[in-house]
Design a binder for these strands. Structure first.
Lengths: 183, 183
DNA sequence: ATGTGCATGTAACTGGTTACATGATTCG
DNA sequence: CGAATCATGTAACCAGTTACATGCACAT
């Protein structure tokens, strides 16, 4: 699980300043997709980001409640995020890992986003082929089920990637050429 | 990540006796689906299973190589596996977690397998609804992409589950004329 | 000669969870 | 009257990875 909560949180702070509690709430709403880290990892991560000057913190006092500590990304933090985002996808990226990057797409240039999706497409296509081959050679019924399931998910993912890449491609073309095409 | 390698390994040993190295090779072939644990977790896990009398070990001597240590499941181990397998799915099971159980389907009764798939179906259906709703309320383009992606995967999974449940249902019906569950 | 496959293992580390503590406020 | 929401945090623990050590056989 090279998922590193660190950059996920940094990416959220890049979209807008927020507190640790806000981070939790937000990720909770996406928990099925990327899983929600516990407070026991969020707060220490924020402290670490602060110590490395990747974020700043401003305490907003409230009556009868602990102060909300609002974290904002710094220039150094934005640079670190940018560097991370522009690294190629690790060779065996999980769906969760890819989703994490997708959530941060707002921090990407459009070109980088499409690159990333193409990298992913290539990886999934390779795995799909491998799975299709494996299905025929496996005898155990459970393993077969698992492989078939994997095939199905892979092909759905490929379809989505192709469709979405197509849409983004069209949008970019419209901007570049400056023509509006009515559908 | 309540994925517990422990039961995955125990399940493999239930299918056939094998060595730690064999376990590794096998899981490596499925690494895209469930991820492959490292030797650094496999060997200690096997030792622990041995100490708890869930498996037995027989060393097969080889010339010029370390002996292969072949692990076999015990009655106690089989009982433990059975107990695990018959627990309901944890409320927020990841795709990986479900796949893991699917791989062990050989250790399930057919009835338990279909139950399990129905539990999964219900969970995914719920999440799908939530995602579809969320897509319309989210403004950030990256988050929207992630949610759409999630929707697509969820619907592919539902389709596969329904289709597979249908097939299994037919098989069971042939054996034991019963009712086909409506989806 | 260099690496890959076979085959075992250990120690240090990391990234996370679980469970706790604090304390006011509002809802059923 | 208890439970949930807001809001912070810490310490103990755990599962797993990384990097290492050993050592032979076989291919490039």
């Amino acid at each position: 699980m090279r998922t590193n909560i660190r950059y996920l949180i940094l990416g959220l702070l890049n979209q807008q300043p927020m507190s640790g509690y806000d981070v939790k709430r937000f990720l909770e709403s996406l928990s099925w997709l990327v899983g929600s880290p516990s407070f026991g990892s969020i707060y220490p991560t924020l402290r670490s980001l602060l110590q490395h000057d990747l974020v700043t913190m401003e305490a907003v006092l409230q009556e009868d409640k602990p102060p909300r500590k609002i974290y904002s990304i710094t220039a150094k933090g934005a640079a670190a995020l940018d560097a991370w985002v522009n690294k190629p996808l690790p060779s065996a990226t999980s769906m969760k890992g890819f989703l994490m990057r997708l959530i941060l797409a707002g921090s990407f240039s459009p070109a980088r986003l499409t690159d990333q999706m193409k990298e992913r497409r290539a990886q999934v296509a390779t795995q799909w082929e491998a799975l299709k081959q494996a299905v025929d050679t496996v005898q155990d019924p459970g393993q077969r089920l698992a492989l078939e399931y994997g095939c199905e998910i892979a092909s759905a993912e490929l379809a989505w990637l192709d469709q979405t890449l197509g849409q983004i491609g069209q949008q970019l073309t419209v901007e570049d050429v400056g023509t509006i095409v009515t559908p």
